[in-house]
Design a protein around this nucleic acid. Structure first.
Lengths: 152, 152
DNA sequence: CTACATTTAATGTACGTACATTATATTTGC
DNA sequence: GCAAATATAATGTACGTACATTAAATGTAG
């Protein structure tokens, strides 16, 4: 696929400013990447946030995580980790148990099935498809610098 | 506010690769911008997609737009324009009427109230807050080039 | 020890997106 | 002219996010 300029992607010939164009381009590209990611996980019955939480839980394994820890580690801090854990629990990829030491908290653990699923996803290379293959390391560093600066 | 590296934002000390870091950074930054945008429109009772559709309709005004045209122009092509128009219609910012020339289609028009709301949002400078103030024009061009290349 | 505040997770509601399906209207082929 | 294909929008369901509220456990001040 050839490089498609954002002007062509959204059928708008010109932009008010380079700022405006960059904003649209950023939103569009992020959406595009998100769709790539969703498509990559779909064969495994996972959504991107579910995958994200599974990976966090594997990082803790065999220790449990609480909902608060998940929220702290997740990309989207304000999202509702409880309900994403619900879905993973239905699929028997995680377990949920009241924490004995603090009965307000809930110990969440990845199951064997969860670990196997993550392994399978990685073995089959589902992730490599969503990486930014088109940029050199130098360009990737440039991009990271620019993005950090935007939020600066 | 100082420039906050993505490592610090999501409390992850290192990344597997520059690619991985750029991916996370892109998703995170886009989410951040989206939240800025949502907050900017909230005082006016609009969401970003609703604002987007209103602007498209103003562009057509006084001609009507169809749902198909809205989908074509919207950033997210697969989203459900019908239901966003529902919300705008409830707020009397647009009207919907079966197209006489093709009764499958629906003529959607922005109302006077809709035009006034857009004008007010722009007059009050709600948009300038969500622009990418921190980057020079040169950096913005760099960013656009990199983003186009990602989807390449 | 009790009352009040705080922590922690879950739930409710509104909104948006993705994908599939449905309901009409129109076009096309015979 | 009529049946089948297509176009157009709306609707249904599952999922996620944002924001507010609730419920229960724990901490704290008196």
């Amino acid at each position: 696929m050839n490089c498609m300029r954002i002007e062509d992607e959204i059928k708008q010939p010109t932009f008010r400013s380079e700022q405006h164009k960059a904003y649209i381009n950023l939103a569009f590209t992020a959406g595009w990447l998100g769709q790539q990611q969703a498509a990559a996980f779909k064969p495994y019955g996972l959504t991107p946030p579910q995958f994200n939480i599974l990976r966090i839980l594997r990082g803790q394994h065999p220790l449990p995580a609480t909902v608060a820890l998940l929220i702290d580690r997740m990309l989207d801090k304000t999202s509702n980790a409880s309900r994403i854990v619900d879905k993973l629990e239905e699929k028997h990829l995680v377990t949920r148990k009241v924490c004995p030491a603090n009965r307000r908290a809930v110990d969440i653990r990845i199951t064997e099935a969860g670990l196997e699923l993550l392994q399978r996803i990685e073995d089959e290379g589902a992730l490599t498809a969503i990486h930014l293959q088109n940029l050199s390391d130098d360009e990737l560093r440039q991009l990271n610098t620019l993005l950090d600066k935007i939020r600066g």
